[in-house]
């Protein structure tokens, strides 16, 4: 079975690395990381991931903007996105129905299993 391609766009370098290690360790994923929103957009077009994990608060272009551009580009419009953010709390997740701007999201910090479950559920859709 082919490995699923995951693109992580997050300005927290340490986090992106350990997330990559973890996901690759499962043997199910091929992971690429970008720490700038703008580079993330370019990577989305070239790498053609099966899913993007996207931070919201980033220094150059914020996650909301990145998501909008991915959805506006015919090459990348079908790629599902999961927001990863430290800006909301767990209790807000349920009150927002688990979505931000129509995309599922995971509050940082969360468990790895929670992340993998969310990835699998989203890709299946």
């Amino acid at each position: 079975m082919d490995k699923k391609k995951i693109l992580i766009i997050d300005d927290e370098e340490g986090f992106t690395q350990v997330a990559k290690f973890n996901l690759e360790e499962t043997g199910d994923y091929e992971v690429k990381i970008e720490n700038r929103g703008s580079q993330g957009l370019a990577a989305a077009r070239e790498f053609k991931p099966d899913l993007v994990l996207l931070d919201i608060i980033m220094p150059d272009i914020d996650g909301g903007e990145v998501a909008d551009q991915i959805k506006a580009d015919s090459i990348t419009e079908d790629i599902p996105i999961i927001f990863l953010t430290a800006a909301v709390t767990g209790s807000e997740v349920s009150s927002r129905g688990g979505l931000i701007g129509g995309h599922p999201f995971i509050a940082k910090p969360g468990s790895l299993q929670e992340l993998i479950d969310c990835i699998e559920k989203t890709i299946k859709k």
Partner: peptide, 22 residues
């Protein structure tokens, strides 16, 4: 402060999970 603290916390958490397996 919350945002600034939550990011490193998530790094630690994922880091620990990785080390636990390796």
């Amino acid at each position: 402060v919350a945002h600034e603290v939550k990011n490193p916390l998530s790094t630690i958490l994922y880091g620990v999970e990785y080390l636990r397996k390796k």
